[in-house]
Design a protein around this nucleic acid. Structure first.
Lengths: 218, 218
DNA sequence: ATATAAAGTTAGGTTTATCTAACAAATTTA
DNA sequence: TAAATTTGTTAGATAAACCTAACTTTATAT
């Protein structure tokens, strides 16, 4: 059985490779940063995960998940997102509160518990942030859509997911008037820095490129 | 914040002192046995818990919880029993399955989660094994009743709780035909070894003294 | 193409929770 | 009460997950 720490490394690798578009390999520093540890620490763990055949990794090379590693990572993501959905739908947690508690709950080991949780929630496909919930077989239905940054000026789109789950980011999302399924109109965009002016329910805001890249729309 | 391990030591101390009748102090060996660690390990932890003012303890002396330690212990017990109730009532877990998963869930840190869980279950006073669930203030309503061993020959009683939560014990309880609120008739008892002959729903069984001491009745 | 910067690794150290083996204190028993 | 047993403690080791500091490899930029 994997430790919580090992599970967290696999989950981070999954997010950095499969879920973050266009890049399917990561480096030690980037992984370390994502986990809030020093590169030296991540390096130790990489050796261990390689030894357990959960990642592909050679000294000074890039890192990727093996099939076995990816399977484990998806299971953790599945648990995380099911618990977020549970907290949001059944326990009146807010958008920005669910993540922190789900970070703990995702490490509970009990296949029966997850099966029952999934059933209790009626086999949801999305979590409260709009992210896809892998099913019991590890299959992911919904594909990551385009981001707000890719929406043309004048067009209107609908928020389907956010990529950053930190409470501070989510609180900012809310402060701009956004929520899941909100309609967003793109008013203008600055060429030189990617800043986008948007309108949500009559409220206008200017958001950074980085922000726009983290808002997934349809 | 306490580690999971520290929480487990406090919980064990609570069970060994306050919940197990007649004895309000414990020794290192007994504590170590309850936690499945070696006495030397427990000894290390005792020093740490003393330093944190969670236990009363002097070298070669007996151990007891301080008010602060007891408060923390009760909080863990509360969480454990609420989760057991949740698993049993909402997720169709059986009597003997709830304990193991609750051992993990009891360490999730979120006061909001516990409040919501308590509310969701409608503020239960007993868990599926009949044990009292401390309320949000740490108060325990139901007092531990008498055991099957104390029931006179010929009398009928009702099972209200069991003291040992191991799956093997609970499975044995079930095999004798027992469950929460079951009626038990005491047919006879051997003087020399405390063995008790009982009848449950027409089924007769002979149980050991140790078994009878772990069955609480009203 | 080489110097500098960035990324990655290694060595050695810390903390937490565990262990074994040896020892000391307290209790029981003959 | 003295010996034997049980109970409790200490010292020294180990493994996991982290750190800092120094070093090496790879990438970048003039």
């Amino acid at each position: 059985m994997l430790s919580q720490t090992e599970e967290n490394y696999l989950k981070a690798l999954f997010h950095l490779t499969t879920e973050r578009a266009s890049k399917s390999e990561v480096g030690t520093n980037e992984l370390a940063a994502a986990l809030n540890v020093k590169p030296a620490t991540a390096n130790d763990m990489l050796k261990k995960l390689k030894q357990k055949k959960l990642i592909n990794y050679e000294k000074y090379g890039k890192i990727s998940l093996t099939v076995a590693g990816r399977k484990q990572a998806i299971e953790v993501v599945r648990k995380h997102r099911l618990w977020e959905t549970f907290l949001y739908e059944k326990f009146e947690f807010t958008w920005d509160e669910v993540h922190e508690v789900a970070e703990q709950l995702e490490h509970i080991h009990s296949s029966k518990l997850i099966e029952k949780l999934d059933k209790f929630l009626n086999y949801p496909e999305k979590d409260p942030h709009g992210d896809a919930i892998p099913n019991a077989k590890g299959e992911i239905k919904i594909q990551p859509g385009k981001t707000l940054l890719q929406v043309a000026i004048g067009k209107t789109c609908k928020l389907v997911a956010v990529r950053d789950n930190s409470a501070s980011f989510l609180q900012y999302v809310v402060s701009v008037g956004l929520g899941l399924s909100c309609k967003i109109r793109v008013i203008s965009r600055q060429e030189f820095d990617g800043t986008t002016e948007i309108e949500v329910n009559g409220k206008k805001s200017i958001v950074s490129q980085k922000f726009a890249e983290n808002i997934y729309v349809a």
